[in-house]
Amino acid sequence: MIDILTVQIIAALLFCIGVAVALVRRNIFFVLMGVELALNATNLSFIGFSRTFSGSASMVGQIVPLFSIAVAAAEACVGLAMVILIFRARESLDSESFTSLKE
């Protein structure tokens, strides 16, 4: 039997790696992919905890990740469209070059 605590620890580590990727990397694609990784980690946490309930309550924990996957699809769609727009305006994928608000 798989230990739920181990699943939750893996989910926490994956979430923190995702946040680290989104914060530290400069290429804008890595920022997007870090957010995707963090979303995946929360899905894993939901499914792990759904095993600790019985009956139909355990199914609710498996339905929430379905919606979260759909929202992630919408987010990736709009996010990539914005990346294309930014790249056309600046000819760069470096997040350091998107600082026109600072100047």
Binding site: A12, F49, R51, S54, S56, S58
Partner: peptide, 15 residues
């Protein structure tokens, strides 16, 4: 997580 002890419920449904 270290302070909690989540246990697998035997009545959980196969999804």
């Amino acid at each position: 997580l270290h302070t909690t002890h989540p246990l697998v419920d035997a009545g959980a449904i196969q999804g």
